[in-house]
């Protein structure tokens, strides 16, 4: 049975590093909690988990998690994670990254990680902007919405991270929001269990830098917006093209089985080893 108390995940936190740096009302804590609940539910060995992040508000999360943690350079979490996973395939390697980090400066690494189908779980904290630097637009800022560097409204189109991941070859693709906190735990559990590249996008709130410029100036309004603009993937499928434009589908967007990178490479090593 899943308990809602913090007691069941507190031992997975570096409590001596708290309080965290995030603003009151930030959604990052909800995602962190969901991730730890997933680790707990999967009963993973904490010694065999490695968490890798890049740069940004959400990437600071690794400091608070009591595993082997690597806070890398901006956008570079997936290359580090790739090296770690290849060298130690038995580890559960999880990348926690923000939308600017993973979709802009780290975008190339994201699509190639997906293409390789290397067994890494990527959880994307999508708050639609660069919060740490004060609210600039990211590749996931919605068309027409405002940011410090889009003061007259965003004129670029955003990526759909789930479609990008799927198109690039990711074999597990899911989306949730911080409103769907319990559903998020289920999706992370399935993403970590999946053998291959798993991408889980989580739409989260940054009312301090993003919401206030876009009529969602409180954490509650950010959550309400998530609730009103998301529909389960099953319902999304039955919508018309016109209806779909107003909503994000949440749930498992795509799941398939394809050869996983480290397993394929291990086949070569088994055959060639000591064949000198």
């Amino acid at each position: 049975m899943q308990s809602n108390g913090l007691s069941e995940i507190k031992h997975l936190l570096r409590t001596h590093r708290l309080p965290h740096i995030w603003c009151p009302g930030c959604g990052n804590g909800i995602i962190t909690q969901a991730f730890l609940r997933a680790v707990r539910r999967l009963d993973l060995d904490p010694d065999k988990i490695c968490i890798v992040s890049g740069i940004g508000c959400s990437s600071r999360v690794v400091e608070y998690l009591d595993f082997d943690t690597v806070h890398t350079a901006h956008g570079r979490a997936i290359p580090f994670a790739t090296g770690i996973k290849i060298a130690r395939p038995e580890l559960n390697v999880v990348v926690l990254a923000g939308d600017g980090d993973i979709a802009a400066i780290g975008g190339n690494h994201f699509i190639h990680g997906a293409r390789r189908n290397i067994d890494i779980t990527v959880i994307i904290f999508n708050n639609s902007n660069y919060g740490m630097t004060g609210g600039q637009y990211s590749p996931l800022t919605l068309f027409g919405e405002k940011a410090t560097t889009a003061p007259y409204g965003m004129v670029e189109q955003p990526f759909d991270m789930c479609e990008l991941a799927r198109g690039a070859g990711a074999t597990f693709v899911a989306r949730s929001t911080t409103w769907h906190a319990k559903k998020l735990v289920d999706l992370i559990v399935q993403g970590v269990e999946h053998r291959g590249f798993s991408s889980i996008e989580v739409i989260t709130g940054c009312h301090v830098n993003y919401g206030k410029r876009n009529c969602r100036e409180t954490a509650v309004k950010m959550l309400q917006w998530q609730k009103e603009h998301s529909v389960p993937i099953e319902r999304f499928h039955s919508m018309t093209e016109e209806e779909r434009k107003k909503y994000f589908p949440v749930g498992i967007i795509h799941s398939e089985t394809r050869p996983e990178y480290t397993e394929e490479y291990a086949k070569i090593t088994r055959i060639k080893r000591d064949d000198r």
Binding site: A73, P79, T82, I86
Partner: peptide, 24 residues
């Protein structure tokens, strides 16, 4: 592979440096 090691050609120079650091 003949020495029980691993080789990977990454998507760019930065990624290859990142993978080296991860492995190390």
């Amino acid at each position: 592979p003949r020495h029980g090691g691993s080789f990977i050609q990454m998507e760019d120079e930065i990624a290859s440096m990142g993978a080296v650091l991860g492995a190390s």
